[in-house]
Design a protein around this nucleic acid. Structure first.
Lengths: 143, 143
DNA sequence: TTAATCCCGACCAAACAACTCGGATATCAT
DNA sequence: ATGATATCCGAGTTGTTTGGTCGGGATTAA
């Protein structure tokens, strides 16, 4: 039940883009520096975000990436699914890969739990948008 | 966001044990056959279930494993945590491993989502007990 | 033209997952 | 006692995944 570094970095990077929303394209180099993430690794992640229409890119000098819609409308779930693919706690649940499923589909005692789990995970991740990540300022302890 | 085969097998095995509750110890060989799981692999999983006091063992001939409490009282979450350890979507959240956490703990924008996610996952898994897995008979399609 | 940027594909080392193997030890039935 | 059947224990193995790196190509603003 771990998220990959890809996802973690993807969400962090998108949060940064949310902060710089509507200020023109932001180069990955900037994000990499701010978030201490390998530039080359970020370069691998962003094509996925682009395919999912979450970001737009501008090539060449002064180029970079920008959100393709308001931070309001970008759910964390969108990012996770874009970067890691559909969320399936067990392979058995993936629609495409029905052969990997247990043969006795109907009799499978555990299937229901994993379905419930999958749905709930998607729910939580879809409840939070980039706005919430960026807007709610953390409270610094005075002690 | 995948569960390991260990967990999947662990839950399936515990479901079998639930069916045979109070009929004496059931050898892993039986479970392995019924669920088509490698015996040797099961042997690796069960010590964890025992450490978590979910099962008791009887050694030697006529031995095997049995639930140490009623299927009512065994939550799927208990099994998952026993077999895979505490559920932490990102390392940053594990209490023990605070050094792995981002230095700027309070300022971390994404932490809140992962905390929420972790809590919800635990909630779902704790809502379902072995009884529900075993009691609710699946509906076979007539078509 | 040059520097910055996205884009693309290959490569790589370490970690992990999912087993397998070979026994040691305990216990019951005969 | 002696097997047969179990749990127990630790190490080895094999393939995949992860989390990167590396080198360069294509594009564009200054």
């Amino acid at each position: 039940m771990k998220l990959s570094a890809r996802v973690e970095y993807g969400v962090r990077a998108m949060a940064v883009l949310a902060i710089y929303y509507q200020t023109g394209p932001l180069p990955l180099r900037e994000i990499a520096e701010q978030e201490k993430i390998s530039l080359k690794f970020l370069e691998q992640i962003f094509p996925d975000l682009k395919k999912a229409n979450l970001v737009e890119s501008a090539r060449g000098s002064q180029g970079g990436y920008m959100l393709s819609k308001s931070p309001n409308d970008v759910k964390v779930g969108d990012i996770v699914r874009a970067v890691e693919g559909p969320i399936t706690p067990v392979d058995c649940l993936s629609e495409i890969d029905t052969k990997a499923c247990c043969d006795r589909k109907d009799a499978c005692l555990t299937r229901q739990v994993w379905e419930k789990l999958r749905d709930r995970i998607n729910d939580v991740l879809d409840e939070v948008t980039l706005i919430e990540l960026v807007d709610i300022k953390p409270v610094y302890k005075s002690s």
